[in-house]
């Protein structure tokens, strides 16, 4: 008798949520595993170019210009000393053998509890076991923020629809030049701390609901305004 695989650790303990087009970069999707205890495990999604274009990773670096996730000391039950990261704070830079560089982000705001240092020695974990041993980091959102942070992310169903929309779209456009993936992210501002004004703006967006989530992301990244429309369309699907 063939036994099917029992529900995995992820199935049993976590809910899968997604952030698509992170930092407004098309296709750069991330997976966030959320536990009912508020622990968020930040991963890369299967649809991310690194995985779907079968890239080979040469280096994963947990620090960049003005930020370092390696310098994070966490003590006690209250995780004192942990870096407080905003949603778009970079977690690591992934360099691939084809020269492309991707920045993977935090996606939920909260305390940085740990980073997966195994990735430094075995970068291939990121593609081979993207939603388990290849996790990027563990974030603990505040007690008051957790639900809101999770709500802002896409559900599996919403994520599936985004992927469907994309594949339909590319079917229409398949004669045009495909959009480049792997923008050289290091040229973008990567401040972990969002200025006060922007936080207020975010709060406004929170009140207005999820539809604005994408707009907010786009606005913050300025240059990618043409994507706003695309994102809204996605949401209205």
């Amino acid at each position: 008798m063939e036994e099917s695989r029992p529900p995995s650790v992820v199935d049993r303990y976590f809910q899968k949520r997604y952030k698509t087009d992170v930092q407004g970069n098309p296709g750069e999707d991330q997976l966030i595993l959320t536990h009912s205890n508020r622990i968020c495990v930040i991963c890369i999604a299967q649809s991310h170019p690194i995985i779907c274009e079968k890239k080979i990773i040469s280096k994963i670096n947990f620090q960049g210009d003005g930020w370092s996730r390696l310098e994070n000391t966490v003590t006690g039950k209250n995780k004192r000393g942990a870096q407080w990261l905003e949603r778009m704070a970079p977690l690591c830079c992934v360099t691939c053998t084809d020269g492309s560089v991707f920045t993977l982000c935090c996606c939920v705001k909260g305390q940085l509890v740990e980073i997966n240092t195994n990735l430094e020695t075995r970068p291939s974990l990121l593609t081979e076991k993207s939603s388990s041993n290849g996790y990027l980091a563990v974030i603990l959102p505040g007690l008051k923020h957790f639900n809101r942070e999770v709500e802002r992310l896409k559900s599996e169903e919403e994520y599936r629809k985004v992927l469907e929309y994309r594949s339909n779209k590319s079917a229409f456009q398949n004669l045009e030049t495909p959009q480049p993936c792997g923008i050289n992210i290091t040229s973008l501002p990567l401040d972990a701390v969002v200025p006060e004004q922007r936080v207020t703006e975010q709060n406004k967006c929170d009140l207005q609901g999820k539809q604005e989530d994408n707009d907010e992301t786009m606005l913050r990244d300025g240059s990618l305004c043409h994507n706003i429309k695309k994102a809204s369309e996605v949401n209205s699907l």
């Binding site: 303990y13 536990h35 205890n37 508020r38 622990i39 495990v41 966490v74 003590t75 006690g76 039950k77 995780k79 509890v113 740990e114 563990v138 603990l140």
Partner: peptide, 13 residues
């Protein structure tokens, strides 16, 4: 053993 994810929210990392 790293503090298990399922208890990490309330125990020391």
């Amino acid at each position: 053993q790293k503090t298990p994810l399922r208890v990490l929210h309330r125990r020391t990392a």
